[in-house]
Design a binder for these strands. Structure first.
Lengths: 196, 196
DNA sequence: GGAATGACAAATATTGAAATCTGTCATCGG
DNA sequence: CCGATGACAGATTTCAATATTTGTCATTCC
């Protein structure tokens, strides 16, 4: 039906996301994706060497959106301390919203995450770099101390310390009552630890 | 063969642990446990109402050992700051050792953990209480600040912030190079955050 | 010429019948 | 009398036959 438009990697990725959303990671097949696009599955293989590569590309796209959403905090103006808490709160809110709003989609996402740890590692690098940018501003302004092992190591420590509030592995906890308090307590502990 | 000894809950738990170790969580059956003890499976049901209850008891025993191992840091003498880092390091070392030394056993353990979240929650309470005891000593001695929301909330924040280094969900990461540095960076950040 | 197709082999997943396991309980034996 | 037994029904798991999917490639079509 959509055979009029040319088949691009982008269109295949959109269809794949839709198929994953509808059937889940276990049942979504390349044939399903091709059917959704009204083409033969052979055509999909022209754009993606394997099913794994296709799923990896979807995962990458998905994660990339988070980085984009958080960029304002990393680059935006304002005091570094507020930008850091804003960044952490926004990340947690994003994740919680996704996990709470559509648990099945979150489960699908978690499977993809598990399949593509290399992609995830690269994504974590991006996020840590965003934290590091905020920390660097804070150090420059004298509100944060440069950590014992450099800003990047400290940024990673901030990311690791808040792991429970952004790692999909903990998504099941995010609906628990009191999780907000736990989050605030950790953020408070971490920001105290950063103070100059 | 061991039919001479009386059948106790304790002996059943030992046999169950052995069976779990040998066959893994998916294959370990109540019949296997009974066979290992040389009794009928009906006898096992005299001591544990269900297979789930049996597994829960094993999980509880397993976790209890950790609490015992860490008690010296919680109660022992010495400066609170050193006891805290010692406690955190010992916990991480314990977990890493188990995960690295016998990955299959760790996987088994992780399945049991997942099945028995109520038991795990109680166990976490115990661990947080141990941290809280150290923090309370530190506050008394003037080396730690009482957190904004009380010692227990702060203790939980310490536990949460170091989650990546004790939660079995992250066991796969514990063999990565640089994990030691990551751990030290988080502990450093946290202890800074606690200082009076 | 270059993108799209669909037949095909090998790998993977599904299915349903057979086997095993869980949990109960009437009976046994010390 | 009281713990242990094993036969049993219903639930779950296993296994092997069957069907689907993945990935390739010679051929088709624009």
């Amino acid at each position: 039906m959509a055979a009029t438009e040319t088949l691009t990697a982008e269109r295949i990725l959109e269809a794949t996301e839709e198929v994953l959303r509808r059937y889940g990671p276990a049942k979504a097949t390349v044939v399903d994706v091709a059917r959704a696009l009204g083409v033969s599955h052979g055509s999909v293989y022209r754009h993606f060497r394997t099913k794994a590569a296709l799923r990896e590309a979807v995962t990458e796209r998905w994660l990339e959106r988070n980085v984009t959403e958080l960029r304002p905090y990393a680059e935006g103006p304002g005091p570094a301390a507020e930008r850091l808490t804003g960044w952490l709160e926004h990340l947690f809110a994003l994740k919680r919203q996704k996990a709470g709003g559509d648990p099945e989609l979150m489960a699908t996402f978690q499977v993809l995450i598990g399949e593509n740890s290399a992609v995830v590692d690269r994504h974590v690098e991006h996020l840590v770099a965003q934290i590091a940018a905020v920390l660097a501003d804070g150090v420059r302004d004298g509100v944060f101390a440069a950590g014992d092992h450099g800003v990047t190591a400290t940024a990673r420590a901030v990311f690791d310390a808040t792991d429970r509030f952004h790692d999909p592995a903990h998504a099941a906890d995010w609906a628990a009552p009191g999780i907000e308090d736990d989050f605030r307590a950790v953020v408070s502990l971490v920001t105290r630890g950063l103070r100059a």
